[in-house]
Structure formats: structure tokens, C-alpha cells
Design a protein around this nucleic acid. Structure first.
Lengths: 137, 137
DNA sequence: GATAATTCCTCTAGCGGCTAGAGGTTCAAG
DNA sequence: CTTGAACCTCTAGCCGCTAGAGGAATTATC
């Protein structure tokens, strides 16, 4: 049996975050010591590793709840998991595209700033005057 | 003089958001009608356009406050604005890199999922078993 | 000029995913 | 048995809004 601190060390998930996941229903309420402290087993550590891994990949808490539920049914078809991961991948790609547009716009603004005073500064002028934008945003 | 709704229509910033910006100190408290409703002038519309523009480019509220302060001093050197925009550009690029790593990892996981049941599902297995990861995350 | 529809006001609370801190209890080492 | 670290619960804060309650002002229609 591991204390919450021990589990935190093993999984890399911070102590308050573990408690937060319990509140959010990702982790079932653990057993408790006589003095009411949380005590975890191997299964809990695995589950938390799963969660951490999914969070690192950017899955939302709700999606992780679904993925966890799916992982409990080894015999079920895995379309669900595929769909969730696929949808997430699509979102990630969209975010990348959006950030790239932002990057291009910022690049253009920063590189054009040749002036030495705010009056001539392209950064400030671009922000003031929408006409200087390349794209709609 | 424009009502808050009129200003909202002109700038594309939602009414509650305008009030929020006032609270955050981006917009000075406006004049009021006899019945205590906000009344804005041209200058306010321009300032709000600046803010919206900066938000669209992903600048944080605090940075926008700084940019607004700089824009009030046309004779000042524009290093400040340059530095803020440059730092932001760097952040955007870092986020893109991070999302690309995520994309690669997700791509790999999704495309490997050939099984028909959760038991064989690469999505689920990859989340359970860190050993299946390409990179540390 | 009355009425109705729309817009406006303030205030409070909620979103996601934690993180920080207060104030108190339990545990493990020496 | 004492100390100090780790634990407990509870509340509040972060960011940038957004939503809703409950009420007042304004505008449009008759």
C-alpha cells in the first residue's frame, strides 16, 4: 500500500492533482488508513499512469473518463477509443494550423518594425489599423 | 456617442467582454448617460479595436495593457513593443513545436490501432504502457 | 402619451485543470 | 515521546471570458 506522496513520486502526478482527479471521478475514492489517509495499490498507480499519459497527450478530463471506461472492457470493440483519439488528433491539427497563421502574422509585424519611435512602430500601427493585416482574424 | 451595444457591433467585441475590459483596466470607465448607461466616443472604439486585434494575435491582457501604454507615447522608442511582440512570437513558435510533437505521437498511436477489441487497441495500450511511447512527455 | 420590446445596468457564479494556502491531524524516525 | 514531515479538508485563485438573475433605462410602435 502506497501513501499519496509515494504514488505521486511513482507517477509524476502532484499530490493535490491526485486528490483533484478523485474529486473529478477519474480515480475512485481509495482505501484509507486508520487515521483517514489515502492508501493506494498497484492498480491505482497504473490507472493514474494512464491518466497522466492521456493528459500529456492533451486529452480532456471528460475524454479520459471515457477512455478509462473503455479500457475496463477488454472484449468490447475499440471503435470508441479510435474515434476519441482521432477526434483529438484533428483538434490538435487545427490548433497547429491556427497557431501557424498567428505566427506568420506576428512574424510579418515584428520584422516590419524598422522605426525607432512608437509613432513609426509597425507593431503598434498594425494593432491600431486593421488595414495592415494580411488575413482576417 | 455610442451605446455599448453599438460599440460591440462596430468592434466585434461582445458586450460583457467590453465591461470585462473596463474592469481589467484596459478601457477607462466611459461616460454615462443620465440613466447610467455607458456612452462611448470614436477614441473608445479605436482603443477597443486595438485590444481586439491584440487579443486575436494571442497577446495576454497584461501585455495589451503595456502595449496600450506604449501607444500613448508616440515619441518614445519602440523597443518595448518590439520586445513584447518578439517574446510572444517565440511563445507561439514553442507552442507549435509542442503541438507538433503531440501530433506525431497521436498519429502513431491512432494509425497503429488495427485490433478490433479494446484488448488489442493500440490507443488504449499506448496509454496504459509508457514503454510504447516514442518520446518522453 | 402609453405600452411593449429591447437594451442596458450590477452582481454573482461558472468554465477547465489545476495550484496555493490556512489550519489542523497522523505518521515514521530517532 | 518528541519532532518534523507528510497528510487531511476546505476555500479561494489563476485566465479570459460567459451566463444568468433581477431590475432599470431606452427606443419603437400604436
Amino acid at each position: 500500500m502506497f501513501s499519496i506522496g509515494e504514488v505521486s513520486r511513482r507517477t509524476g502526478v502532484k499530490v493535490p492533482t491526485i486528490r483533484y482527479y478523485e474529486q473529478m471521478g477519474l480515480m475512485a475514492p481509495s482505501e484509507r488508513s486508520e487515521g483517514n489517509q489515502r492508501r493506494y495499490g498497484r492498480g491505482d498507480v497504473e490507472r493514474l499512469t494512464f491518466i497522466r499519459h492521456a493528459r500529456d497527450l492533451g486529452f480532456e478530463i471528460d475524454r479520459i473518463r471515457e477512455l478509462l471506461a473503455l479500457s475496463q472492457h477488454p472484449e468490447a470493440p475499440c471503435e470508441g477509443a479510435d474515434r476519441i483519439a482521432g477526434a483529438h488528433l484533428t483538434e490538435v491539427r487545427q490548433k497547429i494550423e491556427q497557431l501557424k497563421r498567428l505566427e506568420a502574422e506576428l512574424e510579418r509585424i515584428v520584422s516590419h518594425c524598422g522605426g525607432h519611435t512608437v509613432e513609426d512602430c509597425y507593431v503598434i500601427r498594425a494593432l491600431s489599423d486593421h488595414g495592415l493585416c494580411e488575413h482576417e482574424h
